[in-house]
Amino acid sequence: MEKLTSVEGRAYPFGMKNVDTDIVIPAHWLKTISRSGLGKGAFEVLRTEPGNVFDDPEYAGSPILIAGDNFGCGSSREHAAWALMDLGIKVVIAPSFSDIFSGNAFKNGILTVVLPQEAIDRLMEVARTDPISVDLEHQSVTTPFQDRFAFDIDPFRKQCLLGGLDEIGLTLASGAAIDGYEAKAARERPWVVPAIA
């Protein structure tokens, strides 16, 4: 996973509420067996609309996406995070996220920042003309106009993002504890292992 410390650049002033992962990447794009190339299908349904932010040259290649409440609801498809990654998005800022999406984003090195609606409204305004800075180390989002919004993040996630750490590698370091759990479970609940059909 790529390290993420701070991101500065233009932001898509998107703002839409309840964006489900079918909107982020429709199902017919899920037939791939690789993680890359999904940017082409990102927000496909919305991109049929003239004047949408994703095809506006003003915002092309922006590393930040500003979204509305409950971003990423619906399907568990990690393709949604891969599609954003393929578009070059490194940070999504919204008032709230679905649980599965924020986990998927994190596992791909995308930072999800939760800020109150007033802050989102202000960032939407700034994003139309100017860049935005996100500093993970100091947990803040700033604008060239002296706006500063502090955000919370799970310390473990922060550490993983800053260090670009591989979560599987971290867990495998607990191999002995997993062995111990399995031995105990086999004694106490032997029926958990499925019968051979």
Binding site: S76, I100, G103, N104, K107, N108, E167
Partner: peptide, 9 residues
């Protein structure tokens, strides 16, 4: 439900 990175995990 989990994402693909969690499936791998």
């Amino acid at each position: 439900g989990i994402g693909t990175s969690e499936v791998e995990h």
